[in-house]
Design a binder for these strands. Structure first.
Lengths: 198, 198
DNA sequence: TTAGAAAATGCACATCGTGTTGATAATTAA
DNA sequence: TTAATTATCAACACGATGTGCATTTTCTAA
């Protein structure tokens, strides 16, 4: 499949048009007519490749996330034993992750923006949560008992995601190694410490 | 304005229909025809009260947020001087806030859900951020210098919001006083502490 | 209680985006 | 060059939209 050059070119143009239109008028407000017009592709041709605008969006997302998984697979080795080793390993993983995010920055930014796809963010949060479960063996025994487990888990995972959201939206984003260091530092800082409120 | 009983009844039914339909098919997929049919109101009548479904949504949101502000106004007194006093004051404020959120739980939950309005959540995060700025005089001098200020600020504010999100979606939610205690406790816990990862 | 005001109804209309179809033209791979 | 693939174009029915207007129902105030 996708042997023909025309196929590849058409789908690339449709994807580019989608990203452009998400940034200008937002996904909710754009139509298939908009996409095909912006891409310079006949509207009938759009329906040869995709069912509707949601189908196109889904395939763009699946594609970019599949590539992310390929990148991460390289670091899916065995987990270190000591905590300092694990922290160093995590920092390398963050660096690798953000290197890929930087490469696909425009697409991630559009999808994650307010005009983009809310479920993309939702899925991202879920992915981070699952990653934590599998990697750090996060279960009740590993969680604090000072607050209920569901709140603890949400705070642990979402704080990671919050940093991504700031990074993807800022003008001059930090380099992958910088942001990896920031993340690792933030893991030891409580909100009251961040605010010098003690 | 709105003296007539019919006005109030109609707008109430339209609002109820909106919440119902958000929960069933999601805001993006519901139509004005759906709303008026569910409400048992003529479609033409809908347009007498609202411009479109977005207008109805906006007015429901503005109304519920205005009422929240009324509730919070009562606690807008002077800020205590010592940090322990400020923490106790904050806990009372959280308790008051969640008492109102509990009262309007169904509406908040629908709007905040994945099928609801993403911008409602976005505005909520902004509101929390602004509240922090004005109340805790959050400026660069008050923030840690261990990580960049924009990340610190996001982590401080969003962790509050994350707790709200868990609370609004769980089956047997904690009482206002309980959740206020949980929040206050969480302010002193870093992610690595929450995960017993030290 | 009743007259007049206000609100809701029912229907028609033009508009727009949708998804599909079938005929035609252009491009590719062999 | 040829056969297959792909893109184009025009046309179609459908459904939701927003508006207008005449009619009916309901409420309010005197």
């Amino acid at each position: 499949m996708n042997k023909d050059i025309r196929n590849i070119r058409t789908e690339f143009q449709l994807k580019q048009a989608l990203i452009t239109l998400i940034n200008s008028k937002g996904f909710n407000n754009l139509t298939v007519s908009d996409i095909s017009r912006t891409a310079g592709i006949n509207r009938g041709t759009f329906y040869i490749h995709y069912l509707d605008k949601y189908d196109l969006l889904k395939k763009v997302e699946l594609n970019i996330l599949a590539n992310l998984r390929v990148v991460l697979k390289k670091d899916y080795a065995n987990i270190s034993s000591t905590i300092p080793q694990q922290k160093a390993q995590a920092e390398r993983l963050f660096s690798t992750t953000f290197a890929y995010l930087a490469r696909e920055r425009a697409t991630f930014k559009a999808l994650a923006s307010e005009k983009g796809d809310p479920s993309f963010l939702q899925n991202g949060r879920m992915a981070v949560k699952n990653e934590f479960h599998s990697r750090l063996k996060l279960n009740n025994g590993y969680l604090t008992n000072l607050i209920p487990a569901d709140y603890a888990e949400a705070l642990i995972c979402n704080s990671l995601f919050d940093i991504f959201m700031i990074w993807i939206n800022k003008k001059d984003p930090e380099s992958p190694t910088e942001i990896a260091r920031i993340i690792n530092t933030s893991r030891s800082l409580a909100p009251n410490q961040l605010a010098n409120f003690d």
